[in-house]
Design a protein around this nucleic acid. Structure first.
Lengths: 156, 156
DNA sequence: CCCTGATCGACAGTATGCTGTCGATTCGCA
DNA sequence: TGCGAATCGACAGCATACTGTCGATCAGGG
């Protein structure tokens, strides 16, 4: 980013930093793109992701949060909004009296189908431009980045 | 994410979606890591990024925002906080009476050096684990992803 | 059968980023 | 040279996600 960085010690460190910056920037664009895909159904990226998790079976808020890698509280907020909009509902959980099960309503399933259809067309079109091999290789590298970053957080 | 996705049309689309999901997840971990790096200096990722832009010369809030790829308003908020903490200050801009120039104070430069030092060690260590070639190749692919995603936003 | 620790939802507070709007100023072109 | 368009900071409002705390509930070891 800065044209005149302080001397970095290794080329690999420079490449790592550059990749991190790219990911941070891309994140904003991807959320915007996701919102655009979900907008025709009156939804957002966050709502779509929560709906996607409970699509094939009810789950508690905590389970959804773990599946998405975000906090319970964030999911709780979105889930309550989905319930308020009639897209999802809470069902009693016989296995745990505290944690009701979140599940989609018919309206929720319809909205999700609309979004998924648009998302599939979007991903197919853009994916074809980049090429499957390159995407998979980049994904493999990002997986390793996630691994070492996650490890570093605990150790440091 | 979902174990039983609706039938996606192309392998490239699947790979694209998988990469997007990875990036969204990684973003959270990277911000957490950046905050951890900036914490010893009492700062955060957002503050560090703004300071990094004005490190080698003053700039207006709008210029910083463009350099970071985020909105003026977000930068304005952080810049005002930095000023409040005595890490940055506004200087009159002879070229534009509206837009004062943001520049670091001595305290700001000291805090930035602390963070950059830790960041460099972090990037060097993790970068070495992944390998420069893999990082560069992944960066090249992400650059192409950013290009097609950004193009899609305007067209759609 | 209880007690202790873990998990869960609820609530409050904070950080980051976005959109939209406004008036002031600057810039570019006729 | 003057006027309309673009840019800039300021302000308000919203969405997303985080931490921390609390009481309720669950699960497992004595």
């Amino acid at each position: 980013m800065s044209p005149d960085n302080p001397p970095s010690r290794t080329p690999a460190g420079d490449a790592f930093t550059a990749l991190v910056v790219q990911i941070l920037r891309l994140n904003g664009h991807l959320i915007a793109a996701g919102d655009a895909l979900a907008r025709p159904a009156g939804q957002s990226s966050a709502r779509w992701q929560v709906m996607g998790v409970v699509e094939h079976g009810p789950a508690t808020v905590a389970q959804v949060a773990r599946a998405l890698g975000i906090t319970r509280q964030s999911v709780q907020r979105v889930a309550d909004l989905l319930e308020g909009d009639g897209l999802a509902e809470y069902a009693p959980n016989p296995a745990d009296r505290r944690a009701d099960l979140l599940q989609l309503t018919d309206a929720g399933r319809a909205a999700l189908r609309t979004i998924q259809s648009a998302q599939r067309r979007w991903a197919d079109a853009l994916g074809a431009e980049i090429g499957e091999d390159a995407l998979r290789q980049a994904g493999e590298v990002l997986g390793r980045v996630a691994e070492v970053v996650g490890r570093g957080i605990h150790e440091e």
